[in-house]
Amino acid sequence: MISTRLAPLLSLLLSAAIFGFFYAWVCSTMWGLDAADPAVAIQAMQAMNASVRNAVFFPAFFLTPVVLALTSGLLFRDHQRGAATCFGLAAGVYLLGGFGVTVLFNVPMNEALAAVIVPEATETANRIWQDYSGRWQFWNQIRTVASGLAVLLAGAGLLRIR
């Protein structure tokens, strides 16, 4: 059984991992793709989106809300209401703003881009990329902020544990 010592640390680690993943797209990956030839950007994004479904990504993306909620429950059981509330809020914020935004917005956009045959005409590739990149980055910034807030809430919860 997971302990009230290990669960908060694991919660913080998973929250930080997914925040870092989303943050890297904000501050480097998408800027690099936007600077590349649009056909290359489309192909690169298709390859990255196809590769992200793996066992290394799975825990941070899928298990973060589970571990945060489990941590909250364990802490409530141990009468540590303040810490439990922080971890519970972190679970909700990530579930809605990180996981939910990804599933509702970024993934459908990724799937639509995956179906695109990369056009030879630069103007056509540029139009496809510009339409995708701006919208995708908007939703990525939302999930990045939500995930960062989840990290802060988990950290606050960790500090409140007696």
Rank of each mutant, 00 (worst) to 15 (best):
I2E: 14
P8K: 13
A17I: 06
C27Q: 07
T29I: 15
T29K: 06
W31T: 08
L33R: 02
D37H: 07
A39F: 00
A39Y: 01
Q43P: 00
A47S: 09
M48P: 00
S51D: 12
V52S: 06
F58R: 04
G73N: 05
L74E: 11
L74Y: 05
R77G: 12
D78K: 05
T85G: 01
F87P: 13
A90M: 11
A90G: 14
G92K: 09
Y94V: 10
L95S: 09
L96F: 15
G97V: 07
G97E: 09
F99C: 04
G100A: 03
V101F: 01
V103M: 15
E111S: 09
A112T: 14
A114K: 03
V116P: 01
I117G: 01
E120V: 04
A121H: 13
N126T: 08
N126R: 13
W129G: 00
Q130H: 08
S133N: 09
Q137V: 15
F138V: 15
N140F: 05
N140R: 03
R143Q: 09
T144N: 05
V145S: 09
V145H: 09
V145Q: 09
G148W: 05
L152I: 15
L152T: 11
L153V: 08
G155I: 05
L159W: 11
R160G: 01
